[in-house]
């Protein structure tokens, strides 16, 4: 008997940019992940600690990003120690005066603290952090000894 694996990526659907199909697939992935307890990249769950982080690297740096809308830069504290990065802060939602009646209240205030161990050694001195439009980006330069070094070949 020949079994054909169901792979949506290879079927005819891929030719059409059906966003609804993609959305459904992501939703299915998420349900599947929550049942099987596994985690794949791209799923939303993560470590379950606020804020969710995206960590990426290029040749020079490691980048840690978090979406922190409404958190002022002065309410954030970023520290590096050994090979750990600590992001902590508080999201304040100012009260809107008296005589205000709410229709919806979905945004939450509170404090957060997250520690992440970095995948490579970084140069603690050169770490910089920028918050732009509510997205925090921490740039951590890789330590010189873990950076790839091109060795020039000399001819006699």
């Amino acid at each position: 008997m020949v079994t054909v694996k169901w792979r949506p990526g290879l079927s005819g659907w891929q030719r059409e940019p059906l966003s609804e199909m993609n959305r459904l697939r992501r939703e299915m992935d998420r349900i599947w992940d929550s049942l099987s307890g596994t985690r794949r990249s791209g799923s939303i769950s993560g470590a379950g600690v606020f804020p969710p982080l995206n960590v990426s690297e290029d040749v020079e740096n490691v980048y840690v990003r978090a979406e922190l809308p409404g958190v002022a830069a002065e309410d954030m504290e970023i520290t590096t120690k050994d090979n750990n990065l600590v992001i902590k802060g508080e999201r304040k939602i100012p009260t809107e005066g008296e005589n205000v009646s709410y229709h919806r209240r979905e945004r939450e205030s509170g404090s957060f603290r997250r520690i992440i161990s970095l995948p490579t050694q970084v140069d603690n001195e050169g770490v910089s952090a920028v918050c732009r439009n509510g997205v925090l980006t921490v740039t951590l330069p890789k330590a010189a000894k873990v950076k790839p070094r091109q060795v020039e070949v000399k001819s006699d």
């Binding site: 993560g46 995206n54 995948p119």
Partner: peptide, 16 residues
């Protein structure tokens, strides 16, 4: 886009 083309994800906890 938050991430540049050259970057490679090590951990991906939220989508944009």
């Amino acid at each position: 886009p938050q991430k540049s083309e050259e970057e490679r994800y090590l951990l991906h906890e939220y989508e944009t």
